Amino acid sequence: MAEIRLDHVSFTYPDGTKAVDNLTLSVPAGQRVAIVGQNGAGKTTAVKLMNGLLKPTEGDVYVGDWNTKEHTTAQVSRKVGYVFQNPDDQIFHNDVESEVRFGPKNMGYDEDRVDELSEWAMKLCGVFDEREENPYNLPYSTRKFVTIASVLAMDSDVIILDEPTAGQDKTGLNLLANMLEELEKRGKTVITITHDMEFVTEHFERIVVMANRRLIADESADTVFYNAEVLDESMLKPPAVANMASLLGIDGGLLTKPQLITAILKNIHP
């Protein structure tokens, strides 16, 4: 399993726009990390640097002992799988099963291994019954799971999810929760970009906050969402429970409804 390490990394696009400024970050193998911040903060550029889609203008990005500057995007993507925010940017086959099988086949796995990985990924993502369907006949939320399955089937050490909860209902959110648990059991590293703070607090202990192309906080959720300075600079809205606790003047880094109810009852009946 591979550690991700960004060492004083900056990236400037050809038009002169600096998207990431002197970012230093390490993600140990097997960890779950959420990267949050407003649009334009540098989040997407940062993760594209992690999987080799972009190469740093300054500094170095390491995947395990690989410097991404010394390897092709295709080579790095074998270790770091990236699920795009918009599934329509990723899908190019006429049926779900072919889409999911393409990655492991292209990586040279034998037929039995391709069968095993593809079936596992489709079942985990809830699209096994749709395997003969054209992905574009499926709802947007289901197409997102098709693209997630196609990346999971490659069995990469690191999985990057860009806005995985967008367009998902309760069923989709439950599928994502189960998927994260399964990936953790398999020792996979999961890095997500999201604007869904409820999803973050429920499933990620480590939160990386970016603003103005820089990293401004790298802490636990119960610290980040009670740090007024960080929230103000990043323009993030805390999850509902943290917001309610602050309004009620309750301290203690509460993040879940049971924690809030317990704290309220304790204040009523000390």
Rank of each mutant, 00 (worst) to 15 (best):
Val127Thr: 03
Glu130Arg: 07
Arg131Trp: 02
Arg131Asn: 00
Asn134Ser: 08
Pro135Asp: 02
Tyr136Asn: 02
Asn137His: 14
Leu138Pro: 03
Leu138Phe: 04
Pro139His: 04
Tyr140Phe: 15
Arg143Glu: 02
Arg143Tyr: 03
Lys144Glu: 12
Phe145Arg: 03
Phe145Leu: 03
Val146Glu: 02
Val146Phe: 00
Ala149Ser: 00
Ala149Asn: 03
Ser150Asp: 06
Val151Cys: 01
Leu152Lys: 01
Asp155Leu: 05
Asp157Gly: 10
Val158Asp: 00
Val158Thr: 15
Ile160Val: 15
Ile160Tyr: 08
Ile160Arg: 04
Glu163Lys: 11
Pro164Ser: 11
Pro164Glu: 11
Pro164Trp: 13
Thr165Arg: 10
Thr165Val: 09
Thr165Phe: 06
Ala166Val: 14
Gly167Arg: 04
Gln168Gly: 07
Gln168Thr: 08
Lys170Gly: 00
Lys170Ile: 13
Lys170Cys: 00
Thr171His: 06
Gly172Phe: 02
Leu173Arg: 12
Leu175Ser: 07
Leu176Met: 10
Ala177Glu: 15
Asn178Ala: 14
Asn178Arg: 13
Met179Asp: 01
Leu180Lys: 04
Glu181Gly: 09
Lys185Ser: 13
Arg186Pro: 14
Arg186Tyr: 06
Lys188Thr: 07
Ile191Pro: 10
Thr192Phe: 09
Thr192Lys: 12
Thr194Ala: 11
Thr194His: 09
His195Met: 05
Met197Trp: 01
Glu198Pro: 00
Glu198Val: 08
Glu202Phe: 08
Glu202Asp: 11
His203Val: 01
His203Phe: 12
Glu205Gly: 06
Ile207Gly: 13
Met210Lys: 09
Ala211Glu: 06
Asn212Gln: 14
Leu215Trp: 03
Leu215Asn: 08
Ile216Ala: 05
Ile216Pro: 06
Asp218Tyr: 01
Asp218Ser: 11
Ser220Ala: 14
Ser220His: 15
Ser220Ile: 03
Ala221Leu: 02
Asp222Lys: 11
Thr223Gly: 00
Phe225Pro: 07
Asn227Glu: 11
Asn227Ile: 12
Asn227Tyr: 10
Ala228Asn: 09
Glu229Lys: 11
Val230Ala: 09
Leu231Gly: 13
Asp232His: 14
Glu233Lys: 15
Glu233Asp: 00
Ser234Cys: 13
Pro239Gln: 12
Ala242Asp: 01
Ala242Cys: 05
Asn243Thr: 14
Asn243Asp: 14
Met244Val: 15
Ala245Asp: 07
Ser246Lys: 15
Leu247His: 12
Ile250Tyr: 09
Asp251Lys: 15
Gly252Glu: 09
Gly253Val: 10
Thr256Pro: 03
Thr256Asn: 07
Thr256Ile: 10
Thr256Leu: 13
Lys257Gly: 00
Pro258Cys: 10
Gln259Ala: 10
Leu260Thr: 08
Leu260Ile: 10
Ile261Lys: 14
Leu265Trp: 01
Leu265Cys: 06
Lys266Ser: 13
Lys266Asp: 13
